[in-house]
Design a binder for these strands. Structure first.
Lengths: 153, 153
DNA sequence: GTTGAAATACAGACGCG
DNA sequence: CGCGTCTGTATTTCAAC
């Protein structure tokens, strides 16, 4: 289990992934060496999977987000493999999960604008031949995005 | 606009937010100085919003994800403010967006297990008094998560 | 958990193409 | 004007205690 220092370190690193050992040291009130060892352990044990730069989508001209629910024509090994391969190779697909309910998958998709988003679904996803139908929900406004995971539960 | 170096830098930093100037230098085939200047510019101009550590949810005992569609009792300033405040203060709410369709908001929620997730909705969200109804979709399996934004569009 | 020392990376100055 | 070489300084990394 994680002690209170490790929890605090995770909390800080989720907000600032480039916090130096020195900064963490100040934040958790522990000298740099033990902090460094803990960070190393958190990385080695897989608590910290990786670090990432969070990029502004609007700055890149990506102004449309949508959630697309997808159901496949069948649930054969083959259909699922084709669909998953499509999901992984498509950079526009930011997230994908299999879900409960009437649909098989929920995808979060990004595009330059709503038309481009619809085009992605029509021209790329539906042409796979394994998608039975889809329901698209457009994002009007992002209220909160990729909040940090709670570490104290 | 971004040149090919900056695009490559963004691509790499989204995958490895702690890539050193030297590593970036090797990756984009440019000496460290101009790379460092570009990174600084990308940060200062807001292309890179921040850096974050990506934490393993399972390791933290967070085994349940769900998407919850929410509609409010009314769309008064007050109701919306109360709901947004709840969203921002709740660490279990990872994402929130206002959406098209029959519902007002789509939330991505995390919890230790499905029961805890349902409890969060019942005991915390519904007790706000501003939520008319909700539909919860449970995540069975995460296929792809927080993929990097495409930089070449 | 603390100290300290070697290795590395950063952040900028300066001159070159 | 921006690239690349160079350099003092800060930070990281990992001993030994």
């Amino acid at each position: 289990m994680l002690d209170k220092y490790e929890r605090l370190i995770l909390k800080v690193l989720q907000k600032d992934g480039r916090a130096s050992t020195q900064e963490l040291s100040d934040a958790v009130d522990l000298s740099p060496s033990p902090v460094w060892r803990r960070v190393k352990r958190l990385e080695d044990d897989g608590y910290i999977q990786r670090y990432a730069a969070i990029v502004d989508s609007k700055k890149l001209g990506l102004g449309a987000f949508g959630y697309v629910q997808v159901s496949l024509v069948d649930h054969s090994e083959n259909s699922i493999t084709i669909f998953k391969h499509f999901v992984h190779k498509s950079e526009q697909v930011l997230e994908c999960a299999s879900i409960t309910g009437d649909f098989d998958f929920l995808l979060k998709i990004v595009a330059t604008d709503p038309e481009a988003l619809e085009e992605f679904i029509m021209k790329h996803m539906l042409r796979l031949g394994v998608v039975r139908n889809t329901t698209t929900t457009f994002v009007l406004r992002r209220i909160k995005s990729s909040g940090a995971l709670p570490v104290d539960m």
